[in-house]
């Protein structure tokens, strides 16, 4: 183990980890937005929205995220979409994870007992009121853990943007492996940073989940 080397290069890895964190946060926000819209579409009363939602989920879950990213970043300019690598990474990964989150959110909503909707509709609440005051508060609690699984996958998924040369953790590890020929050290360094990010996020989600359960 080359400890000197690790001590020499670790500041660059810390910088890269910060990029990974930024990517993760922005991707998660975009993913949640796409997931909420997707779930609303899939549960819509209107067939056309349901079809759009189903096609979105099927296409984006049915093809590799890496290919989606390449289509956006390398193919985008051909159809008039010019993005830098970081922007393309956030949008590509966010829309991709949004398809998975759509299913998570929809799953939590349909897991709420039909009787809950029936009881609130019986009292005279409208479809939207029943969703807003009765179903969603309960579904929100159910979806914290599975969304946590999506977010865990998303953090690891940000590594894909190394393939479009965003200088985040995996790209940095790859570059230093190439220049130092020390794959184990570089893996250990970047792997540790990924684990810290993932562990901290996991703790945050567990905390949210506990808090939601108490009330």
């Amino acid at each position: 183990m080359d400890v000197d080397l690790i001590l020499r290069v670790y500041p660059f890895f810390l910088q890269a980890a910060w990029v990974t964190i930024q990517l993760s946060v922005l991707t998660a926000v975009l993913g949640l937005a796409c997931g909420s819209l997707g779930a609303a579409a899939r549960l819509s009363r209107l067939r056309i929205f349901r079809i759009i939602g189903a096609v979105y989920v099927s296409l984006f879950r049915g093809t590799p995220a890496l290919i989606q990213l390449f289509i956006l970043y390398f193919g985008g300019p051909q159809i008039g979409i010019q993005l830098d690598a970081f922007e393309a990474g956030v949008i590509g990964l966010g829309v991709n994870i949004g398809a998975y989150m759509t299913e998570t959110i929809r799953g939590a909503i349909i897991a709420i007992d039909r009787g809950q909707t029936e009881a609130s509709r019986t009292l005279g609440l409208s479809r939207w009121q029943s969703m807003r005051y009765v179903v969603l508060p309960q579904a929100a609690r159910l979806m914290i853990r599975p969304l946590g699984v999506n977010i865990n996958a998303l953090i690891k998924g940000t590594a894909l943007v190394a393939a479009i040369s965003v200088v985040e953790l995996t790209y940095t590890a790859q570059r230093y492996i190439g220049s130092t020929y020390k794959p184990f050290e570089m893996f250990l360094l970047s792997g540790t940073l990924y684990m810290i990010i993932i562990y901290a996020t996991g703790r945050g989600i567990a905390w949210l989940d506990r808090r939601a359960r108490i009330t």
Partner: peptide
């Protein structure tokens, strides 16, 4: 197991490919 579940596949592929060469 923990290491493999907590790090990206892409990083693992680099490790295996270049690590084995090393």
């Amino acid at each position: 197991e923990w290491l493999f579940m907590g790090t990206p596949l892409l990083l693992q592929l680099f490790l295996i490919y270049f690590g084995l060469i090393q």
